[in-house]
Design a protein around this nucleic acid. Structure first.
Lengths: 212, 212
DNA sequence: AGCAGTTTCTATACATGTATAGAAAGTAGC
DNA sequence: GCTACTTTCTATACATGTATAGAAACTGCT
């Protein structure tokens, strides 16, 4: 299409994304609303919907740009360690993105800018001896774990901020020690036990189990 | 408190939960709004908030009841298989709950009625030779994987229903075969490759890796 | 210039979760 | 019975994402 038709646009997707990023960086992801964003770009909320399908897509595009700009880590030669390193890089990339949690409802990663991660993971898994099919399975399993871990960790953080009685706390409070001996044993230490970062442990176990 | 004070309640939490369950079963979880629920119970939306902190807690309580009513499977003697079986039961329990996805933003399972699952998993992990601390880690890693898998699967299902171009499809369409050889190789078969249920494979790998 | 077609933008409206203020309906002490 | 207090409920309001209808601004054709 050499000559475009129709009313000429006053705003572009890129402009919207840039403004969104600005808002997020300045005032946090919680303040990013379509109306606020529109104000920032100098238009109305509904005008944004011509450049972006919905808010979820907006955040996805943002995540995409973000991931595309990250440095790719060097990967070790050993295939097993390669998978672990790539997975941890993926985890770090997504964790570092404050709005990622709202988009994590994806069955797999993801988007143009983030394809590096699945590519490396699948490739390393094949090098480790898996068939391509198994390698794809492995990647998706790792992704599910990664997404679940990040979502969980984000929820925990939010809960700690908001304060108030956790539903879990109540569950632990009325815990029957006879019926649930193990949980009773650790109930008092739960907060402490679950504060540690166990992601690496998890991927290592996963990779060990998957590549054998 | 033998004699209660204050205006006597016209509705109870149990009543609300029952009505909510009825609405979900009859018209789907998508139609469950606070106003609809209030109408069903014969009160106003805001009145519900005296019996339930917010909608999330409502769904959590519902999930709790649901999980509490499920039959507990027999667990095999072998500790490793025991963990796998308990995890799969947990997965099945949560998957079977249509509204669970909206509540899955929890850092760990969960609630009074569902404590059976973590108890069994931690216990089996200890029997398999882990310390209590490691067993708790193992349980949470399994939970993160489980939650991520369910959320992903739900997102995929939704996307299939709604139709329209997936973001992923677009990503695959403009895929550079030189930069991403592995992904290009499987791009055409992605839908087929990711349709299979890989949860069992994942937990098995995870348990293998964790219990060694 | 005028008409048709296309794209972008504006105005308005709606459903939703939930905050807030205050009314209603009880109990206990006097 | 009256007042103080407590709990529950009602009315109203607001921010949010987004649907819908139509106006506005452009191109190309006649």
């Amino acid at each position: 299409m050499p000559t475009p038709t129709g009313r000429p646009p006053r705003i572009s997707r890129a402009e919207i994304l840039a403004a969104a990023l600005r808002v997020i960086e300045e005032d946090g992801v919680g303040t990013l609303t379509m109306r606020r964003l529109a104000r920032e770009v100098g238009t109305t909320a509904m005008a944004l919907y011509h450049h972006v399908r919905d808010k979820e897509e907006l955040l996805l595009l943002l995540l995409d740009d973000y991931a595309a700009g990250l440095p790719r880590p060097d990967l070790p030669e050993d295939p097993r360690e390669r998978v672990v390193t790539a997975a941890m890089a993926m985890h770090e990339a997504v964790s570092g993105c404050p709005w990622a949690v709202d988009v994590l409802r994806a069955d797999d990663l993801l988007s143009v800018g983030a394809l590096w991660y699945p590519e490396r993971i699948v490739d390393a898994a094949v090098r480790a001896g898996l068939t391509v099919e198994d390698a794809v399975d492995a990647y998706r399993i790792i992704w599910h774990y990664t997404a679940g871990e990040i979502a969980g960790r984000a929820a925990a953080r939010r809960r700690r901020q908001e304060g108030g009685t956790t539903y879990r706390e109540r569950a632990f409070a009325e815990l029957d020690a006879e019926e649930f001996p193990r949980l009773s044993e650790v109930a008092g230490r739960w907060e402490e036990l679950t504060a540690r970062d166990t992601y690496a442990k998890g991927v290592r176990a996963l990779v060990d189990g998957l590549l054998r």
